[in-house]
Design a protein around this nucleic acid. Structure first.
Lengths: 123, 123
DNA sequence: GGCTTATATAAGCCACTACTGATACGGTCG
DNA sequence: CGACCGTATCAGTAGTGGCTTATATAAGCC
């Protein structure tokens, strides 16, 4: 399942948000999700499985419980996919921070018009 | 349709990548997509419609053709959603660029409220 | 050991989404 | 005007994903 498909589900996004706050047990996640979305425990468990399988979450047993945590790699992939678009809304940032982190790829960018990008060569 | 659902489809992601290179006509997009994915013209048109409806693309008629272009707002929403996770892989950046941008953005919002995307303050 | 808790899996159902072929509709050109 | 291009829409269909209920497995506790 592609990263964007995984994030396509609101329950999974919410779970990731929860995990962003730190490790949580399956049960703890389940409580919140059941409350907010009104779905069953197996449903949550299935979402956790998807997150595991797609690399968005890691698990660590603690007695009978399972501690889930965020894994950043797939999220970074998503972030990377956004990169070519980011210049549309943050040209100055491009020159400042993001640019720094990713290596400059945007020499050809003009920053005198955010709306005005280069006409694709028609080939 | 939620932004992440829109991006969940590989064809739509590809179309956005194409449009990131500059405006293209429906036909031009169609040619590439048909070649790469082997789907029909109506299928591409339907994807373009989804992109339109969800705000990811804008259209501009030019004679009998339709010129499509990327609209950045929904992509920025996605970017914003990623923010709380970004610290996992770019802590220094957080302090340097992204954080700065968020701060400034929030600042501008407070200042002249030009934007209306979810600031995340709701929790 | 036997009951309870914590979590995962299995099977079946339903809704949704993306596709195709057919068709409509406006613009262009001879 | 009429034929044709470029694009969008419609109707129908197949596949997929997420949900539920029922059940399995493992750990904790008396």
């Amino acid at each position: 399942m592609h990263a964007f498909d995984v994030l396509g589900d609101p329950v999974r996004r919410r779970i990731l948000e929860l995990l962003a706050g730190g490790e949580r047990t399956s049960g703890a996640v389940c409580d919140v999700i059941r409350e907010e979305f009104g779905i069953s425990q197996p449903a949550v468990s299935q979402h956790l499985r998807v997150l595991r399988d797609s690399g968005f979450a890691s698990v660590r047993p603690q007695g009978a419980r399972r501690l889930y945590a965020v894994r950043h790699e797939p999220l970074r992939d998503v972030d990377a996919w956004l990169d070519p678009f980011r210049r549309f809304w943050a040209p100055h940032l491009d020159a400042l921070g993001t640019e720094l982190a990713r290596g400059r790829r945007a020499d050809r960018l003009r920053d005198d018009g955010e709306d005005d990008y280069d006409e694709g060569s028609a080939t």
